[in-house]
Design a protein around this nucleic acid. Structure first.
Lengths: 222, 222
DNA sequence: TCACTGTGAATGAATCTAGATTCATTTCAT
DNA sequence: ATGAAATGAATCTAGATTCATTCACAGTGA
């Protein structure tokens, strides 16, 4: 099965990957400046400094492009969340908090792409939609895992792991979804801290609260 | 200023209102059957059994129509939530639970219109967007009020009223937003009960939990 | 009671528009 | 010189919008 080793082919692949990244970057920049509805093939081409036709070489069409943008975010979740959680050590509560923070950071970074996830369902093929669902679920797996671990060791009071994991994801998504409201009241960091406190307050039973006081506190605490 | 009393004018108004309601109903039915992206002027006209042109008489265009659909849902929130809360009596916790339940019920009933709220931002005029924001905020006011009352009387542990009220709204919205996932695992009623328990678990301090045991319990409680 | 007429309601084929897609042509790298 | 990469004007498409036309009926006079 060693079909590789063709240097020309390898070079092509490398270039393709670079182009693809360039286009995704441009899409992000464009959405960030003009909102997600401005992602037309023309404006994307202009933003990326290439011609429309070229986009079709690297992405089959708009559908595939949007799918790629979305998968890109989900991929960032899949990378950043576990990394942050592992850095946080073994404690399930700290792991959870770290995961939520990472989630919020990626979302802040890719705000419009996250919103796109909710908007683009229309143009996506059934298969694309399915991939997104699968990926979203597997993205959340580390959070679910931490919830389970915390429940098993008694530091977390979890009733329904799946539901509560999804709630955490939505808590973070809300930064993108309701940004028009939150941006007036919180910085990204404040938002993250406050939501972490709220989420953990729901999960950490009283007897363990002292231990996690730092995570449970907010600037606004009375 | 008694410009009314024109019976012809009154009749016209009545008919206009009826038409408008008929069209909004058709839009709901259509979205429910074919998804929100199928709301084209043609298909809406077909569904409502009128001609395309007529829609333009009652709604200026697609933007206004979508705005009306959305305002319609928000209006239902504005009516149902306070009603349910008032029926629940004085106790802030019961009021909150009743409000959340009412929210979930309206959302289940208008699932696609709720999703539309997140999708349609594009086509809405700045003014329409603004009205939606205002309305959403005032819709949540009863929830905020209950949170404040509960905090003041000590039965609720609330750090940031605005943030937590919005989280409750999103908890309910998630039924519509992530329906593809939840529908496989919960009935609307189960979802509502579970989310209520989770939300209240976060808010009711331990010393008051016994009193609200019924709301805090779920079928799934270990 | 019945034709007659004026007015708003309703129609839907024709038009317009935004933007996605194609592909004949040109440029570039080896 | 050759093939891949890139271009962008021309085409295609979905669907929103218009508007000339028809319809329905209330009011009017015989």
């Amino acid at each position: 099965m060693t079909i590789d080793t063709d240097p020309a082919e390898a070079a092509r692949q490398a270039r393709a990957e670079q182009r693809s990244a360039q286009l995704l970057e441009a899409a992000a920049r464009l959405m960030d400046r003009d909102g997600p509805e401005s992602v037309s093939m023309q404006s994307l081409a202009t933003e990326a400094g290439v011609s429309v036709g070229l986009i079709y070489r690297y992405f089959g069409g708009k559908d595939e492009l949007l799918l790629a943008v979305i998968l890109n975010v989900l991929d960032a979740f899949g990378t950043e969340v576990p990394r942050a959680m592992d850095e946080a050590g073994e404690d399930p509560v700290h792991r959870l908090a770290a995961g939520l923070r990472a989630l919020c950071e990626v979302i802040d970074d890719q705000r419009y792409a996250v919103v796109l996830t909710y908007r683009a369902t229309k143009q996506l093929s059934a298969e694309g939609r399915h991939r997104i669902m699968e990926l979203e679920l597997s993205t959340m797996e580390p959070l679910r895992e931490a919830l389970r671990a915390g429940r098993d060791s008694g530091v977390l009071d979890v009733v329904d792991v799946d539901l509560e994991a999804y709630n955490l994801l939505l808590l973070a998504h809300s930064w993108a979804l309701k940004h028009w409201y939150y941006e007036r009241r919180y910085t990204p960091a404040e938002f993250t801290t406050a939501q972490t406190a709220i989420a953990l307050r729901a999960l950490v039973p009283p007897r363990h609260r002292r231990k996690y006081a730092a995570l449970l506190a907010t600037a606004a605490t009375q």
